[in-house]
Design a protein around this nucleic acid. Sequence first.
DNA 1: ATGACAATCTTGACAATGTAAAGATGCGTG
DNA 2: CACGCATCTTTACATTGTCAAGATTGTCAT
Lengths: 193, 193
Amino acid sequence: MSDNYHHGNLRQALIDAGIKIINESGEESLSLRKVAAKCNVSHAAPYAHFKDKDELIEAMKASVTQQFTETLTKAVEDAPDAESAILEMGKNYVLFFINKPDYFKFLFAGQNIIAHISTDKQYAEDYPPFVLLKDAYKKWLKETKVKKSKKEQERDLLNIWATAHGLASIACMSGVVTTIDWEEELSKGLLIH
Amino acid sequence: MSDNYHHGNLRQALIDAGIKIINESGEESLSLRKVAAKCNVSHAAPYAHFKDKDELIEAMKASVTQQFTETLTKAVEDAPDAESAILEMGKNYVLFFINKPDYFKFLFAGQNIIAHISTDKQYAEDYPPFVLLKDAYKKWLKETKVKKSKKEQERDLLNIWATAHGLASIACMSGVVTTIDWEEELSKGLLIH
DNA sequence: ATGACAATCTTGACAATGTAAAGATGCGTG
DNA sequence: CACGCATCTTTACATTGTCAAGATTGTCAT
């Protein structure tokens, strides 16, 4: 780890610095040169680790998504049954982004929701947060012994996802309705009907 | 309308050119200089009409939002009763953006949902599409003679909005689930329960 | 140990872009 | 008709993404 050359782990340092910049001043003020400067490295140094700016951004998104997924995973693990697991997921889904609105904008604004996770897949099936939801939903079906057609199941899943995602979107992107009782809202919106 | 000076209506021409660029190659390739070039005007000419790039973008958003609002308005007018008005609004909400995904990204990505409509208000109350929904919902309450508390009403409204907006978001931003039966999906998701 | 090699980082350059300043142009108004 | 104002051009500059060439350093075969 000499002072200049061979920074140690510049790649991760760049990712962290980039995320920090976004949380401080938003994505619009994210520049490769600033990120490099924040790591005390020349403006072209990032090109040893990322093909271009977009590739750094993808890496940053992957990092944030991982934090997000961990939050949801913990929420599911702490739930006593499948129904409350779904509710807790929804609550944490919304709250995660309400606490860090810049993360929502960063992840879901202007880019493909799941492109940064699996660029070759056309379906959300593998998007980790959705996988969590699917599993909890399947468990719910078993626990409640409710019978649903495949189509109904897909609709339920999409509706739950859309409700949580839509609430997060409205809250994070508009500054609107921050005073609402999210817990009640969610428990109502996420109900499987 | 001499060949150079005094274009005629450069302001509107810039807005239209900007929207065209976005639909052709996405917002990331929108530059003031390209917009100016598309209007056969020097690169600094826009500064006679817009303070900066953001102000042009705001004007473009206002223009797109107006188209959007007109679509929803027409959908409401064509509906026989309040319940179908709400369903049709939802359907048109989603379809409008599915037909022009770049519009969704443009309007709702990275920026405040309603900032470009009313920058001084903190609530969505005046956002035209939401006003349409509120009116239809009030009418629905009357028609069905259903009694709901103020809080329940707010929840219903937000849930309907979130469902439509969330579906549009998921569809436009992810390329996911384009094959689903939106009509069924919506009529289920928008049901007031 | 030593020299080659690859990975990493620096320096220097360039084009695209947003923006500011100063000047040119032409329309309407007194 | 002269003047002023809105509109547009020209010129200039800082920021940014990117590339190419070169410097530095750890690693590894010999």
